[in-house]
Design a binder for these strands. Structure first.
Lengths: 288, 288
DNA sequence: ATTCTCCTGTTACAATCGTTTCAGAATCCG
DNA sequence: CGGATTCTGAAACGATTGTAACAGGAGAAT
């Protein structure tokens, strides 16, 4: 019987119980949801790179009598989607109350909120403006663990604007980078609890060389704050042996969004060109 | 050839030139637009109270070669109708009002909740168990952007257990790593939208070499799912030009917490020793 | 009223559909 | 490694589809 539960959810939930070919098909349907399954079973099978019996088996696993039944249900859902484009998420939670998943996500949500309540929007905007200034070059560095966050920042920032550099995690690469810094350049520093000496020292030297420092740290604030122009403290508590850096990542992404907003007229054509290059090198998947 | 002009408009425009039965049918299609015409010609004819040849004649008057042709065009249009509100929803967010900070954090919180509601705890636990198994070696790889997340995972996982390897972002380092893989090894793959061919291929080869693959992807599910043993889909929508990887990071941290929980008796002394080493090398700050 | 013209639905038919069967392939497990 | 089990696509099937041909029927003009 046709269920009215969102079918994409249903598919994703069933994913673990599927076989290779079925999963490949489900993945195809999800990436082209829902139009992929609006045509004939043959067309869907070919598009998904499987045989039509596989399609039937998949939809039967989902609880439908056959492809026709499945399609009827899908159409009803498409209708609902078209009538109210608002996708309601009133889906009952799947994770048990005490599961790690629940506890962790809860902690992160709390951190987010607490961080938000405590960050000064003026500071944030000023930092974003610094990072958006095309006359300044951007450097980023992190500690042992936050290095990955710095890496993430640089990867995306390089899409937005030129002159962005990640200070490697190998400390013998730092002196040359520091030497290269000019007054007015910006150094984005990540430093959280178990603050690292090396990070502090780099910040100090950078400041001496005239760089503006933006510091993303935890709520106990790294000593590197002494050299920083703008400080953005985050809540990082987590139910585990380590802290959670999710809040840092969110802050970074928000900074990126803000910078992108400030430099859109420059960034947009830049992204277009980049996308073109990626397409040409066939790095991304091509659909036949 | 399928036109992309709005079909309901087209129908209304043609209305005056139609005959009685045709008009009755057109009216039915319009009042039940567009779902009415998504099924078979027979169903549509019956629902409209006319015969199937009438349907054919109507769509031919509209300029289509036949019912199939007409339906193909309609599907394309439904897709357009469906995609734009979804995209718009993702980009307009809940509150167009407010600071970027608020909007972004809100979006991330929603993603977290949605992800949580949809991830199968069994899958998660199984994945964690795989990663905790000391007899297996762990490999991790990500795409252009998710590479940083993979890096983060590896950095922390190396603290928990030995035999953890990050597959570099330089693709010429992959073949040796793949060659090194043994049956039973685990490959943690990150692949989100704009799925990358390279990632897919590595996953495929790894599977052939007998590795177990854990895939962390977005809710449209990377095609690499076909080769994966466990799939963990995340919500990643954000009010910006890119997606947010915060949910991925949270999932990774939760996985780490789970693994750490499973291997605590091994991990604890390991962490102690590591801490000792870091102290001795004076990498961390010393308070006077 | 008759004829003519244009609609309209019934019928017939090939094409395609969705489904079932089954044998080989892949995978798991001891 | 080999046997058992599961998965998968080729083939075959009836059912249904979309279309073409055809004949009856409604209405207009004469």
């Amino acid at each position: 019987m046709p269920l009215t539960a969102p079918m994409d959810e249903e598919l994703r939930l069933a994913l673990p119980d599927l076989t290779r070919a079925e999963r490949q098909l489900a993945s195809h349907i999800l990436t082209h949801y829902p139009v992929a399954a609006l045509g004939s079973i043959t067309a869907l099978a070919r598009a998904g790179g499987v045989s039509s019996p596989t399609v039937v088996r998949l939809v039967q696993k989902l609880g439908y009598k056959g492809y026709s039944d499945f399609q009827r249900a899908l159409r009803a859902q498409v209708e609902a989607m078209l009538v109210s484009p608002l996708v309601k998420q009133a889906h009952s939670g799947a994770a048990p109350e005490g599961h790690v998943l629940t506890r962790f996500a809860g902690a992160v949500a709390e951190n987010l909120q607490a961080t938000l309540a405590q960050i000064d929007p003026t500071e944030f905007d000023a930092a974003a403006a610094l990072l958006a200034d095309p006359t300044r070059r951007i450097f980023a560095m992190g500690g042992r663990i936050t290095h990955a966050i710095a890496d993430y920042f640089v990867t995306l920032m390089k899409v937005i604007r030129p002159e962005v550099l990640l200070m490697s995690d190998m400390s013998n690469a730092w002196p040359p980078a520091l030497l290269d810094m000019k007054p007015g350049d910006v150094l984005l520093v990540f430093d959280i609890r178990r603050y690292e000496n090396a990070v502090l020292q780099v910040a100090e030297v950078a400041r001496e060389r005239g760089a503006e420092i933006v510091l993303i740290t935890d709520r106990w604030v790294s000593p590197a704050a002494a050299h920083a122009r703008h400080v953005l403290p985050c809540h990082i508590e987590a139910p585990s042996a380590w802290d959670s850096n999710a809040t840092l990542l969110v802050l970074v992404e928000t900074l990126l969004a803000a910078v992108q907003g400030l430099t859109w007229e420059v960034t947009e054509p830049r992204m277009k060109r980049l996308e073109d290059l990626y397409t040409r090198t066939r790095l991304f998947r091509r659909y036949r």
